[in-house]
Design a binder for these strands. Structure first.
Lengths: 348, 348
DNA sequence: TATTAGCACTCTAATGAAACGAGTGCTAAC
DNA sequence: GTTAGCACTCGTTTCATTAGAGTGCTAATA
């Protein structure tokens, strides 16, 4: 096992490397708090290297933490740094404005977090799948277009404009709306989605000759409602991570962080409240020298949301963890407040 | 004045430089079509340099076209290149799919044009300001939220969700809708905007104690409808222009092309159908080594739209002009078709 | 046995000299 | 007016040298 000094050395290497970005040598460590000679430190570093916690960039360079080193650090050494009162003020102030919709808060939170860290932040609102359908509207705009609106119980609204075949008259649409509202409103979206595939077509056939076109329409609207809404903040900060070899790499990166598909996979299904994935643990070659900190938060009764931070592997994990810890609580609080204001106005 | 050979030399310099990106020397010109010795060509180049049409990157380098040189070229020499049948096929195919809304076509056109050129493209739909308001809906979603929808005569729809103060009852909202529809529907948006500031508040005061909140709401929705919708395609292509000194510059650039404000200024008020602005003619330091080709197109009866292409100053103007010429006609045709299908279905 | 001083060795980064070559301007001849 | 020839300029590439930071190893020390 590692001695206490070896652990201290690993800790210090990470601390120094995450702030300076320069490989750390034995003398630097000696002058920066390790009470031993450079030779002794070198011996310890050899041990650490044997374990695979640190590595050299070339045969006679200082040491740099490896993925395993970071992993050991975040698992056993890291203590979240406390958040400066300054940063706290910024957070509180940024959340201080009025929001019209739930997604505004979620989107804004990604922006705040990225500004605060200079990294790239993601924000995924509380679980959509638990929501219930409280209203389904179809608004005829003209003979050729309609707008379909889905309203969920918690302030989430999706709308979409459709061109419709002239074959469907506005009377038929009225009928349609009535059916939908009778059969589907009040159900969780998941159930809605299910019924839409089983029960409803049967009923619709009584009224329409060809309900399939109408079904496609529903599919699209519901698809939109289902699609987890991921928001990205500070995508351009990628440029400053200092991990880019060439511009081509930036393009790949940028397309990754804007691909909802990839993102949802990346952010979903994390164990525990705060999870850290380092370098190749992310399972994506392009993200090899980046780390992702994912934090979920509970909004009582409304499922859980997720915020995440993507930065270089050599980020200051202690600072970031401390920050995210505060941030997610702040965000959860604001969402709870928002939901409460919604609930109270509905029951009054 | 310039001799014919001098003009040929300028033309060839531009042709070579726009394809290779390397400064052009006298020998290259001699081997590439100028029937004179390198010394003679050098003499002519000195003349061209006197006029400020070409310049050296250093005291003993080949020549590079200057802004004035490009300007002379596009004004007096340039002949639009014909579009390859391949490209034409791509254009037609890309426009072949079905579109739900007018803005889908406009947005898609920016994407197509940028893909085709590897530059950055902008697309600004036919003039919004000529549109008429054909419908204004307010859909109550729950006690706390409403969705306001604006419909214009030409398939354009804007919607926005609002949280409303509980002080306004749904009955009041109903009244509101009636008033709006009586007074405003059928009017051009400009008139709507005007009446909203003069007549309507008076009427509203009969029904509401405090109509100002409602007014803010209108302002926002109308603001959204007014905001010219500019779409950007291929923003990331900026990275490949080969004009970037550092990443900081890319950030500035990227924020410029995503700032609607700047864009509308950049694209608006062009004389003639196709306009070319080169380097500092754009009046923006950050765009100093870029050129913008702006083309407007007429959609009969529905105002004019604009497409534009931003590339490096050393782009192949002849190719691009040829392409844009075809492209804008194709786009106009498709928009006309779209409007016609809308009109015919409304009058039937 | 753990620690330390000392030293030879390795590798990177920075510096500068030299060679190369593409291109120019000028002069003199055609 | 055109051209051949030539000296000159300047950016680019190459190569060698040097300085410096850091290592691994060995032998001495507590």
């Amino acid at each position: 096992m590692l001695t206490e000094r070896q652990i201290n050395i690993l800790h210090l290497i990470i601390q120094i490397y995450t702030t300076t970005g320069i490989p750390v040598g034995s003398k630097t460590l000696m002058n920066d708090g390790i009470a031993a000679s450079s030779a002794t430190i070198r011996n310890d570093m050899m041990v650490l290297e044997k374990y695979g916690f640190i590595e050299k960039t070339h045969s006679s360079s200082g040491r740099v933490p490896s993925i395993r080193g970071y992993r050991f650090y975040v698992d056993h050494i890291l203590k979240p740094a406390s958040v400066s009162s300054n940063e706290l003020a910024v957070i509180k102030q940024s959340f201080g404005k009025d929001f019209y919709a739930i997604n505004d808060i979620v989107e804004q939170s990604a922006k705040i977090l990225s500004d605060l860290t200079s990294y790239t932040a993601f924000s995924l609102g509380p679980e959509v799948k638990e929501r219930k359908l409280t209203g389904f509207r179809i608004v005829p705009l003209n003979a050729h277009q309609i707008m379909a609106i889905i309203v969920t119980d918690k302030g989430n609204v999706e709308s979409q404009v459709f061109s419709i075949p002239t074959a469907i008259s506005s009377e038929d649409i009225e009928k349609m709306i009535r059916i939908i509202n009778e059969k589907l409103v009040g159900e969780p979206l998941l159930t809605v989605y299910h019924k839409l595939r089983t029960e409803i077509p049967l009923i619709l056939q009584r009224y329409f000759q060809t309900p399939s076109g109408m079904m496609d329409l529903f599919d699209m609207v519901l698809g939109k409602a289902f699609e987890d809404r991921v928001f990205v903040g500070g995508g351009m900060n990628l440029l400053d991570f200092g991990v880019l070899q060439d511009l081509h790499q930036f393009k790949s990166l940028y397309s990754i962080i804007n691909d909802k598909e990839t993102l949802t996979t990346l952010l979903g299904n994390k164990s525990g409240e705060i999870s850290i994935q380092i370098g190749n643990e992310l399972g994506n070659d392009i993200l090899n020298n980046m780390s992702l900190i994912t934090a979920s938060y509970e909004v009582k009764g409304h499922g859980q949301g997720t915020i995440a931070l993507l930065g270089p592997t050599n980020m200051s994990y202690d600072k970031m963890i401390g920050l995210i810890e505060v941030f997610r609580q702040e965000l959860a609080t604001h969402l709870v407040d928002y939901y409460r204001s919604l609930d109270s106005s509905q029951t009054s």
